[in-house]
Design a protein around this nucleic acid. Structure first.
Length: 431
RNA sequence: GGCGCUAUCGUCUAAUGGUAAGGACAGCAGAUUUUCAAUCUGUCAAUCGGGGUUCGAUUCCCCGUAGCGCUGCCA
């Protein structure tokens, strides 16, 4: 590679499965490296295996990359480049560097292969342990190690950034570059993403496709931030990074050498951070598909509900359950209304009190701050040491839950009519 | 088995010859609160082992050990 040549990297997935989070991180790192260096990020679909390649997987991968907010500069399909591979295959066959025996084999020169990995430094492999290796089934059907080399050369890839599970392939590929008289690109082998048992993250560890995380309501900005910090960090103590900041800070030299466990707890933390930061209009829109289908709430009320619940959830998926009581009739056990060791008479008295107070408040004064002022002082009067005596039964009457936002906020959203209805129902429930 | 890669709190990591080994997540405790969440404060917790090199090693070298990866007519 000459010093002034443009930085060009590629992510080269084979569409034989859903977009894996490990692949997603490799994509991210390639993208960040390209953008940091004002280079190109190329996407190459490695669909040489016709049996296993599926259109649906290709779609999943492309959509996953878009969802992450990453854009490719160029897109290629290996299945459309057969002629190019054929040309070089013939060249190798003619020069005797490859031979045909059922399929096409690369003649291993059995030498020591050394390459300087940007992340790991010098990596040495005695290629004789590799033996001759297959590079094509026939002239029109190239195999991975061969097609990848041809494309990386033809596409002028300057840096190959991929998982460390490819280190052995790199030695083979360097041999092919040399046989063709080409200079290999720079290599950077990323540490793997691991499951909790420290083995390569795979299906048996649970959700591994990006689509799964998207469906559960993880935000792309959280996913990005989390994945970027899995094996990389800029050297200071910041945790939250926007895409732009990542592009600015990223460097391969700061990548960790050891594998990193996919720590869902940390992902959850990032996600809740981003959920809280998101503008309420956008968040409401995103939450829509997780809410009960038939709701007759106005946009304004919906936004108020989302504001109340967004600090209580870590994934958008939880929004449906968290907000159900606003839209549906309540079902709960009368015992839930019980604050500490209050008896039925006390609970009823408490609810009666709330009811009469709220009855006296004008419709237009049904705002959380106003309700809070009135009810808090009433609660103090009702039982000086323990405001829960008034507030707990009220909150349960309105939410039907042991855990929920406060009664004032719920009452505002419900409105006077519904609020009073629910209190009345609660009173009737007590037997 | 062979080859390769790796090794700091439970987890993600900072510190590349001189630190009381720092931060974040999780945990725990407290404050706040009608509940939960959030928030704030505090706290627990690590350099795999053994040799070197050096005045001094988390850091450099060697040997172990452990873990992982690769070992396809998949990519």
């Amino acid at each position: 590679m000459t010093k002034n040549s443009k930085i060009r990297v590629r992510f080269a997935p084979s569409p034989t499965g859903l977009f894996h989070v490990g692949s997603a991180r490799t994509t991210l790192f390639n993208y960040l490296f390209a953008k940091h260096n004002k280079g190109d990020f190329i996407l190459r679909i490695e669909d040489t295996d016709k049996q296993r390649s599926k259109k649906e997987f290709e779609k999943d991968i492309l959509e996953g990359i878009k969802w992450l907010g990453l854009k490719w500069d160029e897109l290629y399909y290996q299945s459309k480049r057969t002629k190019i591979y054929e040309k070089y295959l013939k060249e190798l066959l003619d020069s005797g560097k490859a031979y045909k025996k059922e399929i096409i084999w690369f003649r291993n020169p059995n030498k020591k292969v050394v390459f300087n990995d940007i992340i790991r430094g010098n990596v040495e492999v005695d290629s004789s342990v590799l033996g001759d290796f297959s590079i094509a089934k026939d002239l029109k059907t190239p195999l991975y190690n061969f097609a990848a080399v041809i494309d990386d050369f033809e596409m002028k890839i300057s840096h190959v950034i991929r998982g460390e599970d490819h280190i052995t392939n790199t030695s083979k590929q360097i041999l092919i570059y040399e046989a063709l008289g080409w200079n290999p690109p720079q290599f950077a082998h990323l540490p793997l993403i691991l499951g909790p048992d420290r083995s390569k993250l795979s299906k048996r560890h649970g959700a591994v496709s990006l689509t799964d995380y998207c469906k559960q309501g993880y935000l792309p900005e959280a996913m990005r931030n989390f994945m970027a910090l899995l094996g990389w960090n800029p050297g200071d103590e910041r945790e939250i990074f926007s895409l732009k900041e990542l592009e600015k800070e990223f460097s391969l030299e700061k990548i960790q050498k050891g594998g990193a466990i996919f720590n869902i707890e940390k992902l959850n933390w990032f996600n809740s951070q981003y959920i809280r930061k998101m503008p309420i209009k956008d968040l409401t829109k995103l939450c829509l598909k997780y809410l009960p289908e038939k709701i007759d709430y106005k946009q304004k009320d919906l936004e108020k509900i989302i504001v109340l619940e967004k600090e209580r959830i870590t994934k958008l998926f939880e929004m449906g359950d968290a907000t159900r009581f606003f839209f549906k009739d309540l079902k709960y056990d009368q015992n839930l209304l019980k604050w500490k060791d209050a008896d039925k008479i006390e609970i009823k008295a408490s609810l009666d009190k709330s009811y009469s107070i709220l009855c006296d408040i004008k419709e237009r004064d049904f705002r959380a701050d106003k309700l809070k002022a009135v009810l808090m002082s009433a609660a103090k009067e009702f039982n000086n040491n323990d405001r829960g005596k008034l507030l707990w039964p009220l909150r349960v009457a309105l939410s039907g839950r042991d855990k929920s936002p406060g009664p004032f906020e719920i009452a505002e959203i419900l409105g006077k009519k519904k609020t009073l209805e629910r209190i009345k129902k609660a009173i009737e429930l007590i037997k």
